[in-house]
Amino acid sequence: MALLEIRDLHVGVEDREVIRGLDLNVHAGEVHAIMGPNGSGKSTLSHVIAGKPGYEVTDGQILFKGEDLLEMAPEERAAKGVFLAFQYPVEIAGVTTMNFLRAALNAQRKARDQQEFSTPEFLKRVREVAGSLNIRQDMLKRGVNVGFSGGEKKRNEILQMALFEPSLCILDEIDSGLDIDALRIVASGINGLRSPERAMIVITHYRRLLDHIVPDVVHVMSKGRIVKSGDKELALELEACGYGQFEDAA
């Protein structure tokens, strides 16, 4: 059984259909890359999987671990193991990163009937993960993403991904706004989280990211559909020929 199974998905935003019959199967242990031009529906897909309000699913189905994902509230999806690394992480003033991480982690654990982490356990875990991502302690004491650089914000996303241990990670343009050094740190953080139990969907415009995070499958999205799937060589082909060749296929 696939971890994530999307069948004939149709999604509308304000009377405009932006996903028009999309099928996708992602198995545990796999890394899928979704590439495509602006407006092809990549970010919409990530938002619909995570449950962001404002989208209307007009047809189709999303099964996650065999369950109907669309029936679940977004926080339930999170507790079940769906994680979205945001393209533009928000800033929350007055709420320290540490407090935020603890509140979110404990909310998820509570939803799964697991015991909340004790303070020392929690701190130990955060410090370990933060260290591996080169995140300084003082960053954890600041407001969530307040005054963080682009790179720090993205590292903070990966920190959360590592802490929450989700089974499906969706990375929405995690490479945007990163210089090459920051990209390396973020990518190695992500690679460290690859595991046979976990699947990842990496959304990006650029092949560059896929040199660092090597995908098992590459999909090309255009006009709300997946128009071609292949192995990592497809990314190279795309870079050589551009997205134009797929416009007609859509």
Partner: peptide
């Protein structure tokens, strides 16, 4: 953002307000 991290709507509002 907060809800995607597992907080309910009420918890999210509470967190932001308390901050």
């Amino acid at each position: 953002y907060c809800i995607q991290r597992g907080l309910s709507q009420e918890e999210a509002v509470g967190l932001v307000v308390n901050g």
